[in-house]
Design a protein around this nucleic acid. Structure first.
Lengths: 112, 112
DNA sequence: TTTATTTATCGTAATATTGCGATATAAAAA
DNA sequence: TTTTTATATCGCAATATTACGATAAATAAA
């Protein structure tokens, strides 16, 4: 059906999956990495940097804003985008906690 | 078009996005968390645990195996699944490196 | 006021994902 | 050998995602 059965999972599972899904596109990774590199820039700079059409970049920026990993402030006719430091740290912690949960045991083969 | 233009991004960007995309579904998060909890189990256990049909779970397991985050070993008529410790650590490092790349500067508002 | 600049939204086409019933496959058990 | 058990694959329907041209909206510049 193409529709995820989110009701059978916990809030935390759905949230982490949602965040991962937003990171699951190279254009959005590239946008975040460029924002990290230059601290902040306007949307048009990202269009030039990434090499996708303006509506496409706008759509990706919307997704990144939706989960709060970036913020945009209106500067006259353009919008200045940057990482949201607080939310970045929170998301980083969520992923860290997820990965740290696995502690490999001293065994050649875990599987059965 | 629904087709990602992966040729305009770097190998690393595509790889990280691919990994994030695989983590971007709550069923796959739930599968990984259950494997962490019980160390190893057969596919049927995951079908009972997660609450999706067997073919659906099989498909999710295939994706997780594709990126190497889990491994499956045949045990008679069933397959025993577990986290792949080495690849888990490698993927964990990739995400850590990505998140650590952002160092917030001492400023109330980063944006322009 | 008119024009340029910048971003967001709409509409649409192409492709991908999700989920599952039916069925194939393969090994164990009877 | 037949049956049972467990998993994978096929095929399909429903929905989601990606990309972009056209256009709207809103402010700045001329």
């Amino acid at each position: 059906m193409g529709v995820t059965k989110s009701d059978i999972f916990t809030e935390k599972q759905n949230h982490l999956a949602d965040l991962a899904k937003v990171l699951g596109h190279p254009a959005r990774i590239a946008i975040l990495q460029h924002l990290i590199k230059v601290n902040a820039c306007i949307g048009g700079d990202l269009v030039n940097e990434i090499g996708l059409a303006q509506p496409t970049i706008s759509q990706h920026l919307k997704e990144l804003k939706r989960v709060g990993i970036i913020q945009g402030t209106i500067e006259g006719t353009s919008v200045c985008y940057c990482i949201d430091p607080k939310n970045w740290a929170a998301i980083q912690t969520l992923f860290k906690t997820f990965f740290d949960d696995f502690k490999p045991i001293n065994q050649t083969d875990l599987c059965c």
